[in-house]
Structures are given as structure tokens and as C-alpha cells.
Measured scan of single mutants.
Amino acid sequence: EEEEKKKEEIARLLGVSKEDVERILKKNNLDIEQLLRRVQREN
């Protein structure tokens, strides 16, 4: 699934687990696209 791939990509870029990414998304109330763009910009 596309969303899972995005979570895995974010996890890889941040050096965290996919579960961490899911927690970040919930905690910050971000959607996956916003987080992915933010992470890609910083790297």
C-alpha cells in the first residue's frame, strides 16, 4: 500500500521505526504527505 511505503520512507530518512512514524503522525495530527515533504526538505 502506498501509505505504508511512505511511512517506511519517512522512518528510513529519520532513522526511526515505522511505529515511531505513526506516533509522530498521531501526536502532531499531520497527514503522511505533509510529514514526508517536511522530512525530504530537511534531508
Rank of each mutant, 00 (worst) to 15 (best):
I24M: 11
E1Y: 13
L13K: 05
K27V: 14
N29S: 09
Q34W: 05
K18M: 13
L36Q: 04
E1F: 13
L30G: 05
V39Y: 02
E33H: 06
E4W: 06
E4T: 08
E2Y: 10
K6M: 15
I10T: 05
V39Q: 03
E9R: 09
E2H: 09
V21M: 02
N43F: 08
E2G: 11
E9D: 08
K27D: 15
E9M: 15
K6N: 07
R37L: 08
E33P: 01
R41E: 15
R38T: 15
G15T: 01
L13N: 03
G15F: 02
L36R: 05
V39S: 07
D20S: 08
G15C: 06
E1L: 14
S17N: 08
A11D: 00
V21F: 02
L25I: 11
N28S: 14
G15S: 04
I32M: 06
R38Q: 15
L13C: 05
L36C: 04
D20V: 14
N28F: 15
L25A: 09
E1A: 13
K6Y: 08
I24S: 02
I24D: 02
K7P: 00
K27Q: 14
N28Q: 12
K6L: 14
R37V: 11
K18P: 08
E9K: 10
Q40A: 10
I24T: 03
K7A: 04
E33K: 03
D20Y: 13
I32H: 01
E22I: 06
V16R: 04
E3R: 14
R41G: 14
I10W: 02
K18W: 07
E3H: 12
E4C: 08
E42W: 02
Q34S: 13
K5L: 13
V39P: 01
E22T: 06
I10R: 00
K5T: 10
E3W: 08
Q40E: 12
I24P: 00
E8D: 11
E9S: 07
K7Y: 09
E3V: 14
E4R: 08
L35N: 01
A11S: 07
I10M: 04
R12W: 07
N29H: 11
I24V: 05
R41F: 09
S17T: 14
K7N: 01
N28R: 09
L35Y: 02
E19K: 10
N28C: 14
E3F: 14
R23W: 08
S17K: 08
V39N: 02
R37K: 14
R41I: 12
L13E: 03
N28D: 14
R12N: 10
L14E: 00
K6F: 08
K27G: 10
D31H: 06
V16W: 05
L25S: 03
V16P: 00
E22F: 01
D20L: 09
G15K: 05
L25M: 12
G15M: 03
R37G: 13
V21L: 06
I24L: 10
L30T: 06
R37M: 06
Q40S: 10
E33C: 06
D31N: 11
